[in-house]
Amino acid sequence: MSGGSGTRNTNTEPWGSFDDHLIQGSGAAVIDMENMDDTSGSSFEDMGEMHQRMKEEEEVTAEAAATDDDTHDDGEFLGMKGLKGQLGRQVADEVWQAGKRQASRAFNLYANIDILRPYFDVEPVQVRSRLIESLIPVRMINFPQKIAGELYGPLMLVFTLVAILLHGMKTSDTVIREGTLMGTAIGTCFGYWLGVSSFIYFLAYLVNAQITMLQMLSLLGYGLFGHCVVLLITYNIHFHFLFYVLWLLIGGLSTLRMVAALLSRTVGQTPRLLLCGTLSLLHMLFLLYLHFNYHKIVEGLLDSLDGPHMAPMQRVARDVAELTLNASVRSLGVTLRAQ
């Protein structure tokens, strides 16, 4: 990476880039074959990256020089300090420098993407099967169940849930400022996903369950698939009985699946009860909350934000006892009521 880093390939065709390298003339015409498959056409970013890499190299060289000096100085005292301390210090130095380099690289956007990339390494077939599996609880609690550590599916499900929530707020004739709707939807979904994942992870850490944060995020994220399905259906067909059936059936299945996975990774009665009870309670209540209680919360928030002098929001009750249908199918509802 050091010699050829000055030049970077920006062409699609494998051998079309020779002239670029020759023009730039950074000492030698060295081809960086690692970047051969990069088709990005903007030289802008490439320049930035080049600059960044050159700077990193400089830092590394400077550090290496500093270490050399240090070791040289210490070499004179070798007899006094002993070999052991010397070695320990050197190793600690190296580890610290490697860590520092890693940290400084983490600030770079592209390097950040590279860090995250393994979590997005999925095929469409895998995502589909995981979505289906998220609704199928597995009755195997003696042996730790496999939980895929992946973030593509959960992230997309959260965004889908945001879109569904927005849709639900609009069809429910809620007259609130749009920006607030949008922000609330995003805040609710991401807040639930990240917040509950970290909370359950914290609990799992306390009771010594074998689960990582990544697995927890993935598990809970795929658990939102049931929520998406239920809300998509019930935001369009406002029918209490249907919602309760779906809530128990689909929401329950997705909760059971998560509970089974957690059970298989926890040991002992009390920890299992604590962990799974908390998770299932939160997960099922969240669905109820999204369906019913959303408006009041939003109104309360707005009131507290805007002060008491604000006029009360004009709104229409969405969930009335009788069969009420969406605007798109309202004509059907009228005929039903007439009969």
Partner: peptide, 15 residues
């Protein structure tokens, strides 16, 4: 765009 980058796309951000 970030998603496509994470999935291994070779297109640049601004493109």
């Amino acid at each position: 765009t970030l998603n496509s980058k994470l999935l291994g796309g070779t297109i640049s951000f601004f493109q």
